[in-house]
Design a protein around this nucleic acid. Structure first.
Lengths: 225, 225
DNA sequence: AGTGGCAACGGGAAAAAGCCTATTATTTGT
DNA sequence: ACAAATAATAGGCTTTTTCCCGTTGCCACT
């Protein structure tokens, strides 16, 4: 029997039951994988990661409290670019997938794939360095064709600032703009300005548009979950 | 060694990877559990359930496409009241838990519990018929104290009808009421009426309130996932 | 035939949202 | 120190939303 090298993994997902299940499945797939550590979210990951013993591959969720998948991957590529990230998420939205790919993840799996595919993905990422299925390529191509790139570009040039962010959160409530102005200790006219600039940046036409954007991008933290 | 009786389980969850992981964990906990079948959602459950060989316990997710946990449990208690339902969900919202308990589920687990607790819950539901942790009782008591019961009662007396539902969906967009009226081939004044009656029923004060309600209650089907 | 409920519609008005075009501080770069 | 950029603010105006009250036509019940 060949003595194959161990592949060190880390899991970042806020649901322990899912993590444990995943580990159990990975153990069934092959004995060469070793789970270095698990983390609940990005902050937890930052605390648990050991520079002297880095994982080869990180299985990463997208939606997590405190620090989500996007921020975590951004931090990882900045700090430990050698680590390969494989996203395992329930989100199948094109926007999310494209965003993650742009951040440089090595693969994207949906939580409804067969355990077998998880094994193949790990294998591929480990050997080839990436695992991109037709599913992902399809989403990517579609995204390019339908160019939602403009909104993204607009946001890259003109990112929403903290004030606007705070306003956006308050806009996702039944408060009137006057009341929001009050809460933020600003003139209603300033709020007017925030609204208009956000309309521009987010390419929306109404307050409902703001709310929908905020929710789609998980910028509201009502106990969603 | 005692020959313990087999406990038949069924799993209803839209994420195959989670299901498989769960099965793997259950097998580790005890050999007495046997997985009769898995289903992706309520509709799938209705197709796969066999009246001649019913499961003892069903592990049920809440948010699923086509037919969610609420509808599934409702259908189950109507059709097969003897089956005990144990909810396993990532949702920790009081509203959801209370709603599920009202529907008569035998237990509610969050997806971030230890695998050990899953075993205990299965054990408890199987033997005692229920598994209610302090976490759940706490939510329940809090709900009673803060009486969100009124909105619920209002909705039970005055359920939202199909027209209002359709309007509500359209209201979750950047269309103006005039445009919605157009789409629904009705006078703007009728739309006015729908809005007002929904304001009343849902206890909201603005269009944003409508949107938030619709989203919280998963009444919008933008590719959420 | 009369009564009551109800969904669809209309008039009218106040409040809020949305849209311009400026003006005034406050930073910021050089 | 000075020009440029940016944040906060204002005036004034249109459109949309929100609200209150009244009317009409339809259906069911007795």
């Amino acid at each position: 029997m060949l003595n194959q090298p161990t592949v060190n993994l880390a899991l970042v997902d806020d649901h322990k039951l899912f993590r444990k299940g995943l580990i159990s499945l990975i153990e069934l797939v092959s004995t060469k994988y070793h789970i270095l550590f698990e983390a609940d979210n990005g902050v937890d990951l930052q605390q648990k990661i050991d520079p002297k013993k880095l994982p080869d591959i990180i299985l990463m969720d997208v939606n997590m409290p405190k620090m989500d998948g996007f921020a975590s991957v951004e931090w990882l590529t900045e700090k430990y670019p050698s680590i390969k990230v494989l996203v395992v998420s329930m989100v199948e939205k094109e926007e999310t997938i494209v965003k993650m790919l742009k951040l440089g993840v090595k693969g994207y799996l949906c939580k409804d794939v067969e355990p077998k595919e998880l094994g193949e993905a790990l294998e591929a990422v480990n050997n080839k360095g990436y695992y991109y299925t037709d599913f992902i390529t399809g989403k990517l191509v579609h995204s390019l064709q339908n160019g939602n790139a403009e909104k993204q570009k607009e946001l890259e040039i003109n990112p929403i600032n903290n004030q606007e962010k705070q306003f956006l959160e308050l806009a996702c409530s039944e408060l009137t703009y006057a009341e929001i102005a009050d809460k933020m200790c600003l003139s209603p006219k300033t709020i007017d300005g925030y609204r208009n600039s956000l309309f521009e940046k987010l390419k929306v036409k109404s307050r409902v548009g703001l709310v929908l954007f905020a929710i789609k991008n998980r910028m509201v933290n009502w106990d969603y979950v």
